[in-house]
Design a protein around this nucleic acid. Structure first.
Lengths: 220, 220, 220, 220
DNA sequence: TATGAATGAGACTTCATTCAT
DNA sequence: TATGAATGAAGTCTCATTCAT
């Protein structure tokens, strides 16, 4: 995810300092965003001298990429752990979104950082989204194979539903600075998600065939 | 939307200069983002002297807000025009998304700017999203009243589907620098959207209670 | 000589400030050398704000090149004026060296700066020496054509004698911080120079074949 | 030459490390000059840890002085060996210049370093030149005593001819990055040098009185 | 001796904004 | 209105040197 592998600290003391810097950076980025974040602020928060920063990182972008990679990894972990604990697809879906919202509430940093990353570190941002989608789409594809969900295109559906979750989280957690998503909003979203995925008996139209996106030409 | 109403230009020459600056600013913001955009770049692109900028705008944030407001207004206009031209809900839905993707392809600025605005001008960003949702949710509420769609919560559905469209646009238009969304992706997304909204006969699953969020966010 | 043409000041005030900066830079470079010279020192000496520097110059190297170009031009002017006022070659030679030493005594900057320029701005340094040699070699070639001097290779002789003058100036003006070169040193040097150039009847020694360089290096 | 005598290494390992550092420093100084040379670069090139540097040297200037002293010593050795192998003065002259140019071609470091040393370590630079001149002037004085050359002032002549050689070497070896001086240039220079020194019967002009510099620089 | 993390002064540069013309 | 010179705070980064291990 990061272009250059993180320098390994060669000393326990070094490792400790490096970790303190990362922690401080996450906090500063979360609070004031990438551009307002200065190395001075980060080192002050970490309680080390300015020059020490450059012993461990080559610059602001490098530590940013590492923070993003970290957060991205953690949110993926949280989501996949949660959803894989539930056997049925709908349940897994609910658990995954639940985990995502929890993580968002506890680490608003991810949100605020990712949305800034477009001009700062497009690679990091694209990797973040792509990694999440990969796991999500794989789950959807499997579910589709089992007939648990409608034959939607897994990749497109994954991007679409991730986008849905993202804006809902932004609106009801970040903007409200809430500790979690309101239950009714969560259920309303699940209703939409379930509608999008659940196998249905359509009142009209042929049941969609097809697997890959290209040949999928949904009617309507 | 903007805190201070835009200064009206006193003379035709002034109005022309002001317009040139706005145009230049939109281009610069789109190209390099808010933070890399400097007043010097904007004035150079507009072909006016540096000092002239401050004759027309109080600062960088002011012109940014105005550019965002502009773009936001235009995308809303494009979407509502497109969807209101179609009578049935599904058709309106398709037309609205279509217009959104078109606009995105033609004005990547909106995307790139909005996602930066969080730390620069949260009001502008929230206004942008809220305004779009307002119109969207109103349409959904009306459709629901007519029985054209399932009884989803209009506000939550609007945020969710806007999010879906946003990420799909980011992935397949911005990242690919495409001139429009690929047809198969568009249809795959429409399939998801339709699944989320279309009235169905469920084969299984608890009929989720219609969310009670409506009081939180007055839809309309 | 300078790669990029100097920005023309578009205002009398601007021109004044620019000149003040150049003057200050010459003094600072002379005093502490290129590397110890900081923009801060230059602007302080010029009595302008730090940022003002960058209104007129793109950086330290740019102003350095301009200062070098200036000094180089002035010393050439001084030398050619002096030597062209004297008809005979030996007299011209003496006058040229005299002018060079005078200039050196009055503007030690040139010396100290040029010898630093190798790593800083090789182009500027090479241009300086090459320009001096050009004029010098042309004079020697003409004198040779008239039979005023021995048939030495004008270019090689010009570089050699310039080198001789340079070290003599360094040793007896710069190192001694003298106001001018000691008369006896001057005469002793002139003796050497005259020996090198004056037409002679050799009493002994193999009459060296007139160097074979002449064909290789077109002597003007 | 150097203010503080070089610390003797206490152990064989220490001596090896010290030598590695000196070698690395010579290379780094030659490549990027004094100011761009950093202790980090030197230690990296030497393959030792940063802190190790200060075990052997007190700082950057100290190692610089030692490198300069080394090179200066080696070039003097090369020149005196070469010239002392030839009995007649003109032959010795030619051999000395030849050796100087050879050394220059093989160790451009000397050149580049010395010309930087003015602001870094004037003592080292002055010592370098003075040492060379001492030997050179002594040789000239002896030759003059034997009547091998004209009665020029030995010290002034030594400085002058050293300057001549220096610029010729700079122009045709350093700037051209040549492996040696072109033969024709060498001969043309020797022609000039011989003209300057060789005993002659002047066809015209007063035979200049031997300069009175002798008090300044005792010849012998 | 050797190591490498830590330090902090100081350098360069940018840029939003002011102001006299 | 328009101009462009002037300002100076703030930011990033380097690097010689110290020090604990």
């Amino acid at each position: 995810m990061t272009a250059t592998a993180p320098r390994p600290a060669r000393t326990p003391r070094g490792a400790r300092t490096r970790a303190r810097l990362l922690e401080a950076a996450e906090h500063v980025f979360e609070t004031v965003g990438y551009h307002e974040a200065s190395i001075v602020k980060i080192t002050e928060e970490a309680g080390v001298a300015l020059g020490t920063f450059y012993v461990h990182f080559s610059g602001k972008k490098e530590i940013f990429d590492e923070v993003v990679g970290d957060l991205s990894h953690r949110v993926r972990q949280a989501m996949s752990e949660a959803s894989s604990a539930v056997p049925d697809r709908i349940g897994a879906e609910r658990a995954g979104f639940r985990a995502f919202f929890r993580f968002t509430a506890e680490h608003p940093a991810l949100y605020r950082i990712i949305r800034q990353a477009e001009f700062v570190s497009p690679e990091a941002m694209q990797a973040h989204y792509a990694n999440i989608v990969d796991g999500y789409a794989a789950g959807l594809a499997a579910a589709r194979g089992r007939g648990d969900i409608r034959p939607v295109d897994p990749t497109v559906a994954a991007w679409a539903l991730m986008g849905a979750g993202e804006l809902i989280g932004m609106r009801w957690i970040l903007w409200e600075q809430a500790a979690d998503i309101p239950e009714d909003v969560y259920e309303a979203l699940m209703d939409v998600v379930q509608g999008a995925l659940a196998p249905t008996t359509r009142t009209a139209g042929p049941s969609l065939p097809s697997a890959t996106t290209t040949d999928t030409r949904p009617d309507l």
